[in-house]
Nucleic acid binder design. Structure first.
Lengths: 343, 343
DNA sequence: GGTTAGCACTCTGCTTACGAGAGTGCTAAA
DNA sequence: TTTAGCACTCTCGTAAGCAGAGTGCTAACC
């Protein structure tokens, strides 16, 4: 299905105007605003045709038109002008990243803030992670009696801590020896290469306490990114008129809970390389039915990577969203590349 | 100012009914519901008197009465029945704590969930901390080139991490030696005992990189608890009728942001030992004007301690709130005591 | 003197009515 | 194919009317 040039232009105007004003667009106001060389009656005919194609709808007779999900889809894939950020906009973003410390976690958080602020919608960013996480180093620190603090450093350059309880009291000396032994044995291994519970028999009791804790930590780390995306800008989004009714607001508030989003982010839709757009009920039904995702991957091809993007009502400035998501993803990728290559 | 027994009883009924129904209470409905041996006219007279005392108000002529902030204050300090949790309720809570792992962080999170669920309001819990934090142990782990991971263990039994950048490349061996030296010198010191920037001259360059990072981490740790209380149950609270209008909801959503709450929690009001109640504009003005806090301290007298409590509309079930906050605080304190004494 | 019945008065919230405004669909003419 | 014209429809804001709930006051009662 391809529209005539004129019909496409009219659809684009409807989408643009609606994104802008959040009110249904009538034939007359369209002609006035865009100085089409046409009468409102002609536009009405074209609109009727667009409605037959399923690209726009009526909220009710005698109201203006609003884009349907299919209309948005057609718009983003055939009509939307390719837009990149101006160098001014790029500079503003870069500046913020350069002001931040060189901590990876901070960049990720910053990426979320930048997206939320620029797009007035919810920004989603997952922590970067390696598909396989390896144990880099573990340390044991005496706490009290038979307790010790376990610090695990993993290849995705995060440190994780946990208190352990041993069957008997272990002093720092014994703990250090134990740590050295385990580092030698398990250093640079992935979870998959760890002994399973049954094979653990040959290990001593203290060893197996540590090993199973490490195992658990690594496992959790492998899933951590998916479990808790950073969510920023919820209030920004809720300020938009589609959420004006408090019921809708509460439902949405529930839907953008980190824990909910874990399962709901349609990461499958993400192709390689570019930005993916998921519109309305292209997602599974439910609370996201009238919302769209604009998503991209970031990170290093062979190395750690994550996902970032925006969530907002289907009436979203897709052009801006794509441009911002793409740029921030590029910046983050570049920063990680430099970190990896040691400047 | 002390009310007559009857007048007090009437005030208590008004407060109770209003907490329950969220609609202004009229003289007639009061008589009907509580089988007072009085006519509505008499109750009206008493209500007029209570209004003169400033304990209740009219939203407008010919509406029922609602408690004023002063009315709530009188209620909680003189009228409210002392309530403790039933053993059933206690058991349910204890059960949840026993199901959780023995991690302190998890308990704190759990305390927030329990309060939020039981009271349908926002639960606030700060991480426990020592008033003075001491450096227990530091470790350095080689990352790449001139970068290393610094792991700092503090006396409040938390580990903290940060990447460092040295002027020159340091290998694990050198890093370990450096760590050993610094541990010997700074182990068990508080921030206050650290050398200030000027005195740092005698240290080598690598040393001073580490020391200033540790210093910063300890400082941040000393304030961490105040900065980011755990906030749970926002949606529960927003479901209540006082937030039915979307503007109010957005304002409140902003007010319960972790970063906002840091400064707003009226921790000064908290006496020793028992639960503090802060009602309405007894807090500084602004978004908390029509909200109340019910707060308590938890933790060990000489050791780590924190704050926990509830935030909700002034129309809050104060009796339940106090009972729950007190009990959860006791449970948390007891758990920490056991942890400290090594079971 | 405290208590109560009675009554006029008031304010909200809901329903109904109505007109202005914006928009559509259709027909017939250009 | 485009457009002018027109009847029709739906929303939204305002006003009016009315039931319901509540108050304040007065006068009578115990």
């Amino acid at each position: 299905m391809a529209l005539s040039e004129r019909r496409g232009r009219i659809l684009a105007f409807i989408v643009d105007d609606f994104i802008d004003s959040a009110t249904p667009i009538g034939s007359q106001s369209l002609v006035e605003r865009h100085a089409l060389g046409l009468s409102s009656a002609t536009v009405r005919n074209e609109m009727a045709a667009l409605e037959d194609e399923g690209l726009i709808t009526h909220p009710h007779t005698s109201a203006g038109r609003i884009p349907s999900h299919r209309g948005y889809r057609y718009y983003v894939s055939s009509l939307m002008p390719e837009r990149n950020l101006s160098s001014q906009e790029q500079f503003t973003i870069l500046h913020q990243f350069h002001q931040a410390s060189g901590q990876l976690e901070e960049w990720v958080q910053l990426a979320a803030s930048v997206l939320a602020n620029n797009l007035h919608n919810v920004a989603l960013v997952t922590q970067p992670r390696l598909l396989e996480v390896r144990l880099k180093h573990l340390q044991l620190v005496e706490l009290l009696d038979n307790r010790a603090l376990l610090v695990v450093v993993t290849t995705d350059s995060g440190a994780h801590q946990r208190t352990l309880e041993f069957p008997v009291t272990m002093h720092q000396e014994a703990l250090s020896r134990l740590a050295t032994r385990l580092n030698a044995e398990f250093g640079n291994k992935t979870v998959a290469e760890f002994p399973s519970r049954e094979d653990a028999a040959p290990l001593g009791e203290a060893e197996s306490v540590v090993v199973s804790a490490v195992r658990e930590l690594l496992l959790r780390e492998e899933q951590a990114a998916v479990e808790a995306p950073i969510v920023e800008g919820v209030r920004e989004m809720l300020r938009q008129p589609e959420f004006g009714h408090s019921d809708r607001m509460l439902d949405t508030l529930e839907a953008v809970d980190e824990r909910r989003l874990r399962d709901a982010i349609p990461s499958g839709a993400m192709g390689e390389g570019d930005v993916a757009i998921v519109i309305g009920d292209e997602n599974r039904a439910g609370p996201y039915q009238d919302m769209s995702f604009v998503l991209a991957r970031y990170g290093l091809p062979g190395g750690a990577s994550g996902m970032l993007g925006v969530l907002g009502p289907t009436r979203m400035a897709y052009g801006d969203a794509v441009a911002n998501v793409r740029y921030v993803s590029d910046v983050l990728t570049e920063l990680m590349r430099r970190l990896h290559e040691g400047e």
